[in-house]
């Protein structure tokens, strides 16, 4: 028996890596929210993070590993699953499967593409038009970069769309984690599923609050 070859083993690996990334998504949202404290808040937060380079890199490498494992098996099982279902019904009616559960591979791909874009945008600063500079006390000015990016145009749309993909992906993914690990029973299963959707919605609100607030001109 090989975990990387098993129908259950791979699911387990995906669930665990997925859930670790969800932890990051939570922390990242909380960190981002420091933007509501103004330039001082988020710039200070960014500086604190970057003052610990070994940690940053360890973190980055592990995230990369999670993404690769999660994506590799995600693609592999999706290919297998569609091969296992060569012909669809001409009348197709789903009783329990949701848009979110059925679109995991596509929301996954969208998220992966977005992560690349997002890194190029705010980490590597390779996307044209990104404003990089330092604030009054010489810190990297995250605040201006973000506010500038989200004030108009396609960028906030891309971010909001991506966050909807994250919402859909996690709506199914977070609840699935508990099923895959077997941390549930017949009573808790529906509750966990609903909580998972609610939790993902809160994340969605948390994330899109930033571009929305900036678009609305509240943060300048």
């Amino acid at each position: 028996m090989q975990i990387t070859n098993s129908a259950v083993g791979r699911k387990l690996l995906m669930a665990i890596t997925g859930q670790l990334m969800v932890l990051f998504v939570i922390v990242h949202m909380l960190g981002n929210s420091s933007i509501f404290l103004g330039a001082n808040g988020i710039n200070a937060y960014a500086k604190h993070l970057h003052d610990l380079p070994p940690l940053v890199w360890a973190f980055r490498f592990s995230m990369l590993a999670f993404i690769l494992v999660h994506a590799w098996f995600g693609i592999q099982v999706s290919v297998e699953n569609s091969a296992a279902t060569p012909k669809k019904y001409s009348v197709q009616k789903h009783l329990r499967a949701t848009l979110s559960s059925k679109s995991m591979i596509w929301t996954g791909v969208i998220i992966a593409l977005f992560v690349i874009y997002h890194l190029l945008h705010f980490t590597v600063h390779a996307i044209p038009g990104v404003v990089t500079g330092v604030d009054a006390i010489g810190r990297f000015d995250v605040y201006t970069m973000v506010v500038n990016a989200f004030q108009s145009g396609l960028v906030p749309v891309i971010y909001i769309a991506a966050m909807i993909a994250v919402f859909l992906h996690l709506s199914h993914g977070v609840g699935s984690f508990f099923q895959t690990l077997g941390w549930n029973n017949a009573n808790t299963l529906p509750k966990i599923s609903n909580t998972s959707r609610g939790f993902s919605f809160v994340l969605l609100l948390g994330y899109i609050a930033i571009p929305v607030v900036i678009l609305a001109g509240i943060l300048k």
Binding site: S6, T85, R96
Partner: peptide, 22 residues
């Protein structure tokens, strides 16, 4: 049994729960 499931050409479970309803 899970290996045999794979070898027999069945797909993987991704927790749609469609099976329970059907």
């Amino acid at each position: 049994m899970t290996d045999a499931l794979k070898e027999s050409g069945f797909g993987n479970c991704s927790n749609h729960y469609e099976c329970e309803a059907a």
